[in-house]
């Protein structure tokens, strides 16, 4: 992974993290936009997925620095009758999957939207 790619991933993750404060669905919305904008790049959806995992993982780490996040995982895991680690996995997988799928959709849209076609012709 190149330095540029790392930087791009981090920037996208920061955008996802900021969007999460508005609502969780900002992640797929932003990922779709990212997928659209990076339609000609290979690996755009992967970057989106990694960035989403990084964003939500970072936010979990922030919660853990401020308070007992491990107890939150244990609590929710107990209620859902899964291991606490599964709560982490579920959270990050949800974010990653939402971002990857939305980015794929964004990339696909690039090929069908009129504006995109013009852009491609240019």
């Amino acid at each position: 992974m190149t330095r540029a790619l790392i930087l791009r991933t981090v920037l996208v993750a920061a955008a996802f993290a900021a969007g999460t404060f508005i609502a969780w669905w900002m992640v797929p919305v932003a990922a779709a936009a990212f997928g659209y904008m990076t339609a000609r790049d290979r690996g755009g959806p992967i970057v989106a997925g990694l960035a989403a995992i990084l964003a939500w993982g970072g936010l979990i780490a922030w919660n853990a620095m401020v308070g007992p996040a491990t107890e939150v995982a244990a609590l929710l895991g107990g209620v859902l009758q899964v291991r606490p680690s599964a709560v982490y996995v579920l959270t990050l997988a949800f974010a990653g999957l939402a971002a990857v799928c939305a980015a794929v959709l964004g990339r696909a849209a690039y090929g069908v939207l009129p504006g995109a076609e013009r852009g491609q012709a240019d």
Binding site: T20, W24, L59, N63, L90, T91, F94
Partner: peptide
């Protein structure tokens, strides 16, 4: 709904920040 529950900014994870 899992989205609002799991998101770590204001979802269930934020309970850690409200603990004290």
């Amino acid at each position: 709904p899992l989205g609002g529950l799991l998101e770590p900014a204001n979802g269930v994870w934020a309970l850690a920040r409200a603990a004290t």
